[in-house]
Design a protein around this nucleic acid. Structure first.
Lengths: 225, 225
DNA sequence: TTGTTGATTTCGGCA
DNA sequence: TGCCGAAGTCAACAA
């Protein structure tokens, strides 16, 4: 990653045409070849940029000033005319490790594992998270107040595939005499109408969970310790 | 603007929960108080960020390591745990004079308004841009060589909604005895196959316009004066 | 590869 | 101030 602070003017010709008058800005050249131009405001959006794949050529214009030309395959061009370089440094960062975001789904699972009563009543108990089956792990396996087994599939957005997935788990789990009869709960922040119809048609109960409320309860409990 | 290259791990708790394992990254602190964390790829979007208004506190965690805590009014928190600082520099940038940009759709409309023959033949005349109807303005209303009214919908990318929109306008315009019969032209830099099929099925003619060529003609004409 | 959809969307216009 | 729609949307995922 190369960081350049420079007085520069910038022109972009591509999907639109844009011009930045001469001013001091940060020019960020990343290892993937992308270039972005930042002002000292707007947290996240560059004033101008070129997404990879693209190539950067350093040269001079007719007047002898430094001119960076960034082009991509589509013929879009970002021209950075540099009047004065105030800082220029390069840094080896390496590849950023794997997954960036802890998705909501994992966190939802965690929260529901701590508060299974949200799925039924205060008598509900968690048996296991990621309960293993031959066709993959069930998100949660619980016991309801009556002691009956319940398989829970958790999604951020509940769509038809999630119902299908839970259906397959239920079919398998119900072959186990120690568990059967196993009922199903389909829990999501949002459940699509088609998914709900399919689920209910198969006797699977749908629960729309309130992520913020779950987290709130979680935080409140955490504060007790 | 402060540029810090550091080995760090990052946690964000706010609208969602996210975690970035220890790695070398760029931490960008802007004059508006915003903080963003960049990896060595993706021109546009940081891995994590906090938009202004927010406040940055530098401290140490229990283990004595450097811990930056960025918070905003909504209670969202960005925690940056710094294991090693590889670079740290600050720069005065001043206020950016701002971006001058030409939107494509508006510009396309302007160019086609100047060159309606592109949509038909040299006999075409523009009646009005943004021709008002009860359900919104039609981009262009023209008269063809035979004097018949033509409603023109302009998009950068022609998709189905654009065809639906034009269809609604045509239905309305055709109720006006001073205009009827009104035909339709769907003009875009790029027209999706599904949109084309729908349009042609409804008797709407599709015109793919060459933005650069239009602009070229425009520039050439401008040069005459 | 193409299309669809969500996003810590951001950003602007307009009522 | 809030809704609605576009964005050089970007980016992830499904078909």
């Amino acid at each position: 990653m190369r960081l350049v602070i420079a007085r520069c003017s910038v022109d972009y010709v591509g999907r639109l045409t844009a011009h930045l008058p001469l001013a001091t800005r940060l020019v960020l050249v990343k290892a993937d070849g992308s270039v972005s131009v930042h002002a000292d405001d707007r947290a996240y959006k560059p004033l101008n940029w070129m997404s990879p794949p693209c190539s950067l050529a350093e040269g001079t214009d007719e007047a002898g000033a430094i001119l960076w030309t960034v082009t991509n395959k589509a013929g879009e061009r970002l021209l950075i005319s540099i009047a004065e370089v105030l800082h220029d440094s390069s840094h080896e960062l390496g590849v950023d490790p794997g997954l960036v975001k802890d998705g909501v789904e994992a966190h939802l699972q965690e929260l529901l594992a701590e508060q299974p009563h949200v799925l039924g009543d205060d008598g509900w108990r968690l048996v296991r998270r990621e309960y293993a089956t031959a066709i993959g792990p069930v998100d949660l396996l619980c016991r309801d107040s009556a002691g009956a087994a319940v398989a829970v599939e958790i999604k951020r957005r509940g769509e038809i595939d999630g119902v299908e997935q839970l259906t397959r788990y239920l079919e398998l789990l119900n072959r186990d005499p120690l568990l059967a009869p196993v009922t199903g709960v389909f829990a999501a922040q949002e459940i699509k109408p088609q998914a709900r119809v399919l689920a209910e048609d198969r006797g699977i109960r749908c629960v729309v969970v309130d992520y913020d409320a779950l987290r709130g309860v979680d935080d409140a409990e955490a504060r007790l310790f």
